[in-house]
Design a protein around this nucleic acid. Structure first.
Length: 595
RNA sequence: GGCCCUAUAGUUCAAUGGAUAGAACGCGGGUUUCCUAAACCUGAAAUCCAGGUUCGAUUCCUGGUGGGGCUACCA
């Protein structure tokens, strides 16, 4: 419709002023609610062409459009804005078209579809997932669905940071103080158990340092020579040497963690197609670095460490291999990227990683390009802001971390309390009720996080918990369940939408408002996929749910006597339901039948 | 010090360079004979400061100020 209007305006300008105007000057936007009309042309950019006042120009164009385009029923001019009204019957026709398209808004991947690899989650195996990981997982998962809906071939991956000194720390602490504790014996979730030993390491290490300093050591000596640190370093060396006992311990503890992570991932509803482990990729990275060094692309310092010089790119020197030849983070990521390219031949690779690593990913792409990998141009760091608490940043050392499992439980619990207060779940079994509470609680959590512009830091206040009213996930779910309920009642009453006369009724303004939004859905999906922004979908859904509720509140649907009108409204309801369902799917939020 | 991100009602979030800056929570009023009141209606309340570009700036540019991040032989 917008395209039609644009064409019409171009023709109007040609006919009125005899000029072909650059399309960029024809700015069409949605008419703001407080004015009459559906679409608005901003006439200011056209004044140079018309050489007339804004009002005259707008009126001239309006007259032309109204007599040349039948779909346009009227226009008005305010302050240089030409508000154009599309005939209501035209909107009814649009609704009919929309209802005819089964999966409108979602595209099937063609044979020439881009392959997009999306890496997200990327946990360390020394501690449980926290609130920051939740934002990461939700964004990554939703992005993968957006990409899929936009017709891309999507590979969802996860890289597990399963090696390094930090992993050895929890292994050392468990060996020394664990007394054979296991998840089974303690009843603790595996990742939480391992996390406790990581924290214990840090605490005991600090005690040792304090004792050494009290005995006359300098802080540096204490830091480097505390028995626990020596033990952790020794264990890392043993690990790299493949020592059997160490490897067994490592496997055992990592498996505890993976079992714990799986529970959290399942609760969050996120999935992966392929999981990579740094313990598998770091060697490839090392080899890449050594090859590049041999080709003279890198340089070695006197102490034997290997560096890349990025001063030409306005960055500095970056370490790629330690003086003892071991790999660093960058080394592993180089290896992982190359392995992934070999695995999937991707066109694009999206890394969902926090913005504190902007520099890291800038360097990663540059180093790969320097090594001659042209595909590195397709690497994209999807950089999101941190989740802060009202007291400030979460710090694991200070114990101000919000645990992912805890927050999920808390949200479900809040949903349970709210639901029971409303008391609308009569006739459901306990298990069914729990399932609904879980869906609602998670929707609240997911929506709360996804509706925010990913680039921005966001504040999460666990004490106040999350709203279930207003611009929230449960509000959208609620709207969906109302729709389901109406459709069901209609069915029971034998009212079938879409009879032969469907499309003859003329929608009122509130109905048109809903139709307009439904009409926008496909564009919103591709826009959100383009902009990598689940927040756009979230806000779209809220608009739609609100607009629908306003219509729903004022007009009867099943009780409407006029069959054509009832048909229109039922169809409108049905399509809104489908659209909300699709939109929620994009956000990874479940749509309950009842709540 | 250098580099990057960010600043909007009391709070949490919106706004392709366009009209009177939208919502939600909270606060103040209302609306249930009717398909779900987790709803609907309604009131008060905001663009960090100073310049610049533009017919027009919350948006773009410059300079301040505040907040955050990076600048590790941690990951």
């Amino acid at each position: 419709m917008e395209y039609l209007l644009k064409k019409g305006i171009k023709a109007a300008l040609k006919s009125l002023y005899g000029t072909d105007v650059n399309e960029e000057l024809i700015q069409i936007q949605k008419t703001r609610k407080e004015f009459d009309g559906d679409m608005t042309l901003v006439v200011f950019p056209l004044l140079k062409t018309s050489r007339k006042s804004p009002a005259e120009t707008a009126n001239g164009l309006g007259e032309y459009l109204i007599s040349n385009i039948s779909a346009i029923s009227s226009f008005n001019v305010i302050n240089g804005f030409l508000n154009i009204t599309v005939a209501p019957s035209e909107w009814a026709a649009r609704l009919k078209e929309i209802s005819a398209a089964e999966h409108y808004g979602f595209r099937e991947p063609g044979t020439d579809a881009e392959t997009v690899v999306i890496e997200y989650s990327s946990p360390n195996t020394n501690k449980p997932l926290h609130l920051g990981h939740i934002r990461n997982n939700l964004l990554g998962f939703s992005l993968s669905r957006l990409m899929k809906a936009a017709g891309k071939r999507v590979v969802r991956t996860n890289i597990v940071n399963d090696r390094g000194i930090h992993i050895c720390k929890s292994m050392v602490a468990w060996s020394l103080f664990g007394d054979g504790e296991t998840p089974e014996k303690s009843g603790k979730k595996g990742d939480h158990l391992v996390g406790e030993y990581y924290v214990m390491f840090d605490r005991k290490y600090k005690e040792q340092m304090a004792a050494m300093e009290a005995a006359g050591s300098t802080p540096e000596e204490a830091r480097d020579n505390a028995p626990l640190m020596l033990a952790a370093r020794e264990m890392l060396l043993k690990w790299e040497a493949g020592d059997n006992e160490t490897m067994d311990l490592w496997h055992m503890m990592n498996n505890w963690v993976y079992e714990g992570f799986d529970v959290t991932y399942r609760a969050l509803g996120v999935e992966f197609d392929k999981i990579y482990y740094e313990s598998d990729t770091y060697k490839t990275g090392k080899q890449l670095v050594l090859d590049a060094l041999a080709s003279g692309l890198l340089f070695r310092k006197d102490d034997g460490s290997v560096w890349v010089d990025l001063t030409a790119e306005k960055l500095d020197h970056k370490l790629l291999l330690r003086s003892d030849g071991t790999a660093v983070y960058m080394t592993q990521d180089l290896g992982t990227a190359v392995i992934r390219y070999n695995d999937y031949n991707f066109n694009r690779h999206i890394y969902v990683v926090g913005n504190e690593q902007n520099y890291h990913f800038q360097v990663l792409a540059l180093v790969l390009l320097k090594m001659g990998y042209r595909w590195a141009e397709g690497l994209h760091h999807f950089s999101y802001g941190m989740v802060e608490l009202p007291e400030g940043r979460m710090k694991s050392r200070e114990g101000t971390v919000v645990d992912a499992d805890d927050i999920i439980d808390e949200m479900t619990g809040t949903a349970r309390v709210m639901s029971q207060e409303l008391g609308k779940l009569g006739g459901f079994s306990e298990a069914e009720k729990e399932d609904i509470y879980r869906k609602i609680g998670l929707a609240a959590l997911k929506y709360y996080i996804l509706k925010v512009d990913p680039r921005k830091n966001m504040t999460f206040n666990p004490a106040e918990s999350i709203d279930f009213n207003g611009n929230t996930g449960p509000f959208i779910q609620y709207t969906y369940t109302r729709i389901k309920s109406v459709l069901k009642k209609g069915q029971e009453a034998g009212i079938k939408p879409g009879g032969s006369s469907f499309g003859t009724a003329i929608p009122n303004q509130k109905e048109i408002n809903v139709i307009k939004l439904l009409n926008d859905f496909p564009a919103s999906v591709s826009e959100a996929a383009e902009a990598l922004s689940p927040a756009l979908i979230a806000n779209y859904l809220y608009d739609l749910a609100r607009e629908f509720n306003q219509f729903y509140h004022d007009f009867p649907i099943l009780g409407e006597e006029n069959e054509d009108l009832r048909d229109l409204r039922l169809k409108l309801t049905e399509i809104t339901g489908k659209t909300i369902e699709n939109g929620l799917w994009l956000l990874g939020i479940e749509a309950p039948e009842r709540m």
